[in-house]
């Protein structure tokens, strides 16, 4: 196997507060290969956005990385100085946020925001940066890009703004793009186009994608592998086909019930009865045990360790451990 582009090991993120310390991410480990699309799913509050923020070095204080390590092409990036990390943001890791209506500064034209970002990371003149910006806008599908570039963000529709955001995230040729629910805020009619655009443009530039979403359908169509998060812990990770067709973790099986079909639309993962525990009251043993239909004694006392399975899969579940031991 080639060296992973991004490697996260035992990542632990904590929020210290007056009453103690909340552990928001606990023991998260995964790799992303160059050019690969990794989907990341989980209920609201599972820690998907936090994982992205930790990787890109933008956890909001008092949140902090309390353990583990993050490597980009083998280089440790979680211990870099703020200035060194800033040089990586935008240049080597790009980010696309959820809401394009609020992601762009309303007081600057699209050209100003693009040129500023390009020139932060590349030794280009104002004129060359502008040329590059126009080419990018053209590539992400803004019609009449050379003219529209001097417009302000409010002149664009939501879908068009997300295209601008994508151009901004990609303008310095990053090796990894973290897209945090890039279509949740958009009109249903343009969601598929935006996802396709992200996938295409990253593939053509060889950029890997970490795609955070609630939509299992999108994952099934877009991702190479998928990571399932629950209560700040990794439940299961593996190639998309395998995980979807043969989920090993009971929580993943519950999620699969939420893939929208043609007749019924659902973008929230609500099929499993009960709610995810709050960070301050995660049960001992397996975090999923109060909701798990297959929980047994060991689940309530001992936390399941992630177990490697054939085909590059990993599962953290006692039931799966028992099965593989027997089978």
């Amino acid at each position: 196997m080639t060296e992973p582009l991004l490697s996260v090991r035992d990542l632990r993120v904590e929020f210290p507060n007056r009453r103690g310390t909340l552990t928001a991410l606990d023991g998260i480990s995964f790799d992303i290969a160059p050019g690969e699309v990794l989907g990341m799913v989980g209920e609201s509050g599972a820690g998907k956005s936090l994982t992205g923020a930790a990787i890109i070095g933008l956890l909001e204080p008092p949140g902090r990385i309390a353990g583990g390590e993050i490597r980009l092409k083998g280089q440790r990036i979680d211990t870099l100085s703020p200035e060194q990390m800033r040089r990586i943001r935008g240049k080597r890791i790009g980010m696309v946020f959820q809401d394009p209506l609020t992601s762009l500064n309303p007081l600057y034209t699209v050209a100003q925001q693009l040129v500023e970002t390009i020139r932060t990371h590349m030794p280009l003149s104002e004129v060359d940066a502008r040329k590059r910006a126009i080419a990018l806008l053209d590539r992400v599908g803004i019609p009449a890009a050379a003219r529209r570039i001097d417009d302000y963000p409010h002149h664009f529709s939501g879908g068009m703004r997300q295209r601008v955001v994508i151009a901004l995230a990609l303008c310095a040729e990053p090796e990894l793009v973290i897209a945090d629910e890039p279509t949740t805020a958009l009109d249903v009619s343009v969601q598929a186009q935006i996802i396709d655009l992200i996938k295409e443009i990253c593939a053509e530039r060889g950029a890997a994608v970490m795609l955070i979403t609630h939509d299992m359908g999108v994952i099934a169509e877009t991702a190479d592998r998928v990571a399932v998060l629950y209560a700040g812990r990794l439940a299961e990770i593996g190639p998309v086909r395998d995980v979807i067709l043969d989920a090993a973790h009971p929580y993943t099986r519950g999620l699969m019930g939420s893939i929208p079909t043609l007749t019924q639309e659902s973008d929230r993962l609500v099929q499993i009865p009960g709610a995810m525990p709050r960070l301050s009251s995660i049960p001992t043993g397996c975090a999923f045990n109060p909701r798990c239909p297959e929980a047994f004694d060991r689940c309530r006392t001992e936390r399941p360790v992630p177990l490697d399975r054939p085909g590059g899969r990993q599962v953290a579940c006692w039931l799966a451990a028992k099965e593989s031991a027997h089978g």
């Binding site: 890109i56 933008l58 800033r86 040089r87 990586i88 943001r89 935008g90 240049k91 790009g94 980010m95 946020f97 809401d99 609020t102 992601s103 762009l104 500064n105 309303p106 500023e116 970002t117 932060t120 990371h121 955001v165 901004l168 995230a169 310095a172």
Partner: peptide
Amino acid sequence: DYIKFARARGL
């Protein structure tokens, strides 16, 4: 968000 996005672009 636009300040977060500005930081995420490495400005």
